[in-house]
Simulated scan of single mutants.
Amino acid sequence: MGMISEFKEFISKGNVLDLAVGVVIGAAFGKIVTALVDGIIMPFISMITGGVNVSDWKHVITPAQIGADGKEIAAEVAIKYGALFQTIIDFLIIAFVIFLVIKAYNRMRAPAADAAPPEDVLLLREIRDSLKK
């Protein structure tokens, strides 16, 4: 019974709900960034590289072997680094946008540096100073 009540307490905390919302929003944001990279950024990179699709970049170690009948006997062995390159670009964009969001959030949370002390604090300071004399 103790574990069930601990689990209920854990689930009922606000942090778990915040985390769940963050994961769902993060997954949706990841799809947006992937669409941005696939649809806008990678075509520009392909244009620069002569029309080659970045995700198709690979280093062939052993080419495919094709028999006399035209069928593939053995598949090619290749290091496909293009997909890794595209995923790294996705990650960098997501990390940069999250950095900007956190930076803006921290700027909103920061208290005003030039905030004057409340009137009651000023009054108490005057009383303190007059009692010292």
Rank of each mutant, 00 (worst) to 15 (best):
M3H: 05
I4H: 01
I4Q: 01
S5G: 01
S5Y: 03
S5P: 00
E9S: 07
E9K: 02
F10Y: 09
I11P: 00
S12E: 02
K13I: 00
G14Q: 03
N15E: 11
D18E: 09
L19W: 15
G22N: 13
G22S: 14
V23L: 14
V23D: 12
V24K: 05
V24Q: 06
V24F: 15
I25R: 08
A27P: 03
A27E: 13
G30L: 12
K31I: 14
L36I: 14
G39V: 07
I41D: 01
F44L: 07
I45W: 04
S46R: 02
M47Q: 05
I48D: 01
T49R: 02
T49L: 12
T49H: 02
V52E: 08
N53V: 02
V54G: 00
V54Q: 03
S55C: 00
D56S: 07
W57L: 09
V60K: 00
V60Q: 01
I61A: 01
I61F: 11
I61G: 00
T62W: 03
A64R: 02
A64W: 03
Q65G: 01
G67D: 15
D69F: 05
K71W: 02
K71Y: 10
K71N: 14
E72L: 05
I73D: 08
I73G: 07
E76C: 07
I79C: 00
K80L: 02
Y81G: 05
Y81K: 04
G82A: 08
L84T: 08
L84R: 07
L84A: 10
I88E: 05
I89M: 06
I89V: 14
I89C: 03
D90W: 04
F91H: 10
I93V: 14
I94G: 07
I94H: 05
A95V: 15
A95W: 15
I98H: 08
I98D: 07
L100T: 10
L100E: 09
I102F: 15
I102G: 07
K103V: 10
K103W: 15
K103I: 11
M108W: 06
R109Y: 10
R109L: 11
A110M: 11
P111F: 04
P111Y: 03
P111C: 03
A112K: 11
D114S: 08
D114I: 09
D114N: 14
P117V: 12
E119P: 02
L124Y: 06
E126G: 10
I127P: 00
R128N: 08
D129S: 08
